[in-house]
Amino acid sequence: MAFKGTIEIDTQKCKGCAVCIENCPAKCIRLSKSVNSKGYRYAELANDGCVGCASCATVCPDSVITVYRVKI
């Protein structure tokens, strides 16, 4: 069984700590080029490799990531 997933990031609350990036086994998150209203670069999807494992959201200190997942 395989999964496909995606994430939704509350970019205004993200502080760009990058702990999610380090924890993503699919290496599909990166920091944005632009900054949010607090001046932080925020996490964003870098490619379509997300499998919805929720590792990023689990370690996110600010709980800004929502994870979606479907079986394919």
């Binding site: 496909k4 997933g5 995606t6 939704e8 999807l45 870098a46 490619n47 379509d48 919805g52 929720a54 959201a57 689990t58 709980s63 800004v64 990531i65 929502t66 994870v67 979606y68 997942r69 479907v70």
Partner: peptide, 21 residues
């Protein structure tokens, strides 16, 4: 890169707990 078909409430597997303000 975002898959809009997946982003549906029934597909949520992880989100901020409701108990966090």
């Amino acid at each position: 890169m975002e898959n809009l078909d997946i982003k549906r409430p029934e597909n949520i597997v992880y989100r901020k707990p409701a108990l966090l303000t």
